[in-house]
């Protein structure tokens, strides 16, 4: 069963709709009891880093989610700001992140972006696979996903990066360390490739 963490941040219904259509068992987890029996966990997120972290810590779910991911090692997927929360910290805020990935979140350097509307990086952009991983099974070398963000995750180790994109700089947009995955794009808004990505996660 896939638990979609519902801590009041992000469009959780979008993930539920897709998993219902795909026929995977998924539900919204609002309380610790909801997490019982979880075999996978999705951490969505939008908005400001500190706001999302605060809401997550206040939700009363963080300890259980920590245990499921770090001790029981069930597959976890952080999406957009949910991905950024996996890092140690973010230039956007002052709160510490979850620290599940050896990475920090940094802002795009607008001086390097020659594309006129600088930030946020919004729209459909290429996702280039740099390392084979089950979560990208059946994907072409390059596919298009929908992005909406101004910050990205910079990993300490290149080996944690499985796909990159370009926006003034090459940045990691899909990452993985052991059972933990993160995606910067919005799979729930990325049509066919997005659905396939969420399907692949469900099948891990």
């Amino acid at each position: 069963m896939i638990s979609i963490i519902d801590y009041g941040v992000g469009n959780v219904k979008a993930f539920l709709n897709i998993y219902n259509k795909l026929g995977h068992k998924a539900y919204l987890a609002k309380t610790e009891e909801d997490l019982i029996g979880s075999t996978k966990v999705i951490l969505p997120g939008v908005g400001h880093f500190d706001y999302a972290m605060t809401k997550f810590l206040e939700s009363g779910l963080s300890e259980s989610v920590n245990d499921l991911v770090l001790n029981k090692k069930i597959p976890a997927l952080g999406i957009c700001v949910g991905m950024q929360m996996l890092a140690r910290k973010s230039e956007e805020g002052s709160m510490p992140g979850l620290g599940w990935m050896e990475a920090d979140v940094v802002r795009f350097d607008i001086d390097k972006i020659d594309f006129r509307p600088h930030l946020p990086h919004m729209g459909w952009n290429d996702v280039d696979i740099v390392k084979n991983d089950k979560i990208l099974d059946g994907f072409p070398k390059q596919s298009k996903f929908y992005f909406l963000h101004s910050y990205f995750m910079a990993c300490d180790k290149a080996s944690d990066v499985i796909a990159t994109s370009e926006y003034g700089t090459t940045f990691s947009c899909i990452v993985n360390h052991e059972n933990i995955y993160g995606i910067q794009c919005h799979p729930e808004k990325s049509h066919g490739f997005g659905i396939k990505f969420l399907d692949n996660f469900a099948k891990l």
Partner: peptide, 8 residues
């Protein structure tokens, strides 16, 4: 609409 499509 939100249930039926997954583009913005």
């Amino acid at each position: 609409i939100a249930k039926a499509i997954n583009i913005p």
